[in-house]
């Protein structure tokens, strides 16, 4: 299945792009996609604890199951206002 991955703020800068599409096996989770990204960009490991995950616009835990066409966002702590 294919999932659209969005990266914001510091995470976007480390990854080098705001958006990418990833292929993963059925039964894949949000945490699995994050772990793959950390493997590719080890610098992300430093901010792992403060990173929030959202699936299709709603916050989820790492264990959240993904489905084909989902949008998965990786977000550092918010700084609006």
């Amino acid at each position: 299945m294919r999932v659209r991955v969005l990266a914001f703020a510091r995470i976007r800068e480390i990854v080098g792009s705001a958006e990418r599409t990833v292929e993963l096996a059925e039964g894949g989770t949000a945490g699995r996609v994050w772990d793959d990204l950390v493997r590719e960009f080890p610098q992300l490991g430093e901010i792992e604890r403060s990173t929030r995950l959202a699936r299709n616009g709603a916050l989820v835990e790492r264990e959240a199951a993904l489905h084909d066409g989902d949008e998965l966002a990786f977000m550092p702590p918010f700084g609006g206002g």
Partner: peptide, 24 residues
């Protein structure tokens, strides 16, 4: 609530030329 819950981020650009993401 906006500062705590809304998915917006800010980066500070310092006069020194450095820049840093600033969480609430």
């Amino acid at each position: 609530e906006l500062k705590a819950r809304v998915s917006i981020w800010k980066k500070e650009h310092f006069r020194s030329g450095e820049a840093r993401w600033r969480p609430n």
